[in-house]
C-alpha cells in the first residue's frame, strides 16, 4: 500500500457514508421539490406513486392566483431595507465600539443580551408600539422590527472583524490626513468588506425567513412569503402541492444569492485565519 493512499473499498465506504448523510438532510427538500412538481391529486396519494408525470401547474397557480409576486416583493423589500440599514448602522456603531479605550464590556454584553431574548417575547410590545405610531401594515413596521435583532447581530459579528484590523492603521491614516469618515471608508471598510458581506447575507436570510413578527405586524398589503406560505394551511386542510411549490419559490432566491456570493462568504468566514 502506498503511503497516504486508501484502499478502494475504504474510499467507497466513506463515500457511501457521506452520501447517506447528505440524503438524510436533502430528503425533505427533495420530497418538497417532487410534491411541487406533481398534480394535487397525486400529492395526496398515500402510499406515494412514483411513476407520475411532472407538471408546473402548482407554480402557475401559486404565482397567478395567490398573488405570490406581491409577497415576493414585500419580502424582498423588507429584507433588503432592514439588511442595508442594519449593516450600515451596525458597521459604524461596531467600528466606534471597537475603537474605544478599554474593553467596553458593559456595552458589548448589552448587545449580546438582545440576542438572548426569544423574539416572541418582543412581538407584543413591538406590535403595540408600531400601532401607536400608526405604522401597522407597512413595510417600515417589519423593517423596524427586524432591526431589533439584526442590528445587534451585525454589531456583534463585525466587532470581531474590526478587532482584527490594527488600530495603528486608523492612526496611520489620521496622520496621513484622513478625517474619521475618510479613515472608515478608505482604509477600514475595504479590509472588513468580506466580513460585512457575510454578515449582510446572514441578516438578509434571517429577515427573508422571519415568520413570527411578519405574522403579527403584516397585513394583506405587506404580507411576506413565510406568512403567505403558512396561509396555505387552510380550514379545508393543507394545500400541500401549492405549499411545496411556494416553499421552493421561497428558497430559490436564497440559493441563487448564496451561490452568487459564495466567494465573499467563504472569505468572510475565514477572515483572520488567513491574515
Amino acid at each position: 500500500m502506498q503511503l497516504g493512499k486508501r484502499p478502494v473499498w475504504q474510499t467507497t465506504l466513506i463515500y457511501i457514508g457521506l452520501i447517506l448523510v447528505c440524503l438524510f438532510f436533502l430528503m425533505p427538500l427533495l420530497w418538497i421539490l417532487r410534491t411541487s412538481l406533481i398534480t394535487k391529486a397525486e400529492a395526496y396519494q398515500i402510499p406515494p406513486n412514483f411513476n407520475v408525470a411532472l407538471t408546473l401547474e402548482n407554480y402557475i397557480e401559486v404565482i397567478s392566483d395567490n398573488g405570490f409576486g406581491r409577497y415576493y416583493l414585500n419580502s424582498a423589500i423588507v429584507a433588503l431595507i432592514s439588511t442595508v440599514l442594519s449593516v450600515v448602522l451596525g458597521a459604524m456603531s461596531s467600528y466606534w465600539l471597537s475603537r474605544q479605550p478599554g474593553n467596553m464590556t458593559g456595552a458589548k454584553l448589552a448587545i449580546l443580551a438582545t440576542q438572548m431574548i426569544p423574539p416572541i417575547v418582543l412581538v407584543i410590545p413591538i406590535n403595540t408600539m408600531i400601532r401607536s405610531v400608526g405604522l401597522n401594515d407597512t413595510w417600515m413596521a417589519l423593517v423596524l422590527a427586524y432591526l431589533t435583532f439584526n442590528l445587534p447581530y451585525v454589531i456583534w459579528m463585525l466587532l470581531g472583524f474590526y478587532d482584527n484590523v490594527s488600530k495603528e492603521l486608523d492612526e496611520a491614516s489620521a496622520i496621513d490626513g484622513c478625517s474619521s469618515l475618510q479613515t472608515f471608508f478608505k482604509v477600514i471598510f475595504p479590509l472588513i468588506a468580506p466580513g460585512m458581506m457575510a454578515t449582510a447575507v446572514y441578516s438578509f436570510l434571517v429577515s427573508w425567513n422571519e415568520f413570527v413578527f411578519a405574522l403579527v405586524l403584516s397585513g394583506n398589503a405587506t404580507r411576506t412569503i413565510p406568512v403567505a406560505i403558512a396561509a396555505l394551511e387552510t380550514q379545508n386542510g393543507v394545500k400541500i402541492a401549492e405549499l411545496c411549490a411556494s416553499t421552493i419559490l421561497a428558497i430559490l432566491p436564497i440559493v441563487l444569492l448564496s451561490s452568487f456570493i459564495k466567494k465573499y462568504l467563504v472569505n468572510g468566514l475565514t477572515f483572520g485565519s488567513i491574515k
Partner: peptide, 8 residues
C-alpha cells in the same frame, strides 16, 4: 509605526 501599519 513599530508594526509598519501599511494599508494591506
Amino acid at each position: 509605526f513599530q508594526n509598519y501599519a501599511l494599508y494591506p
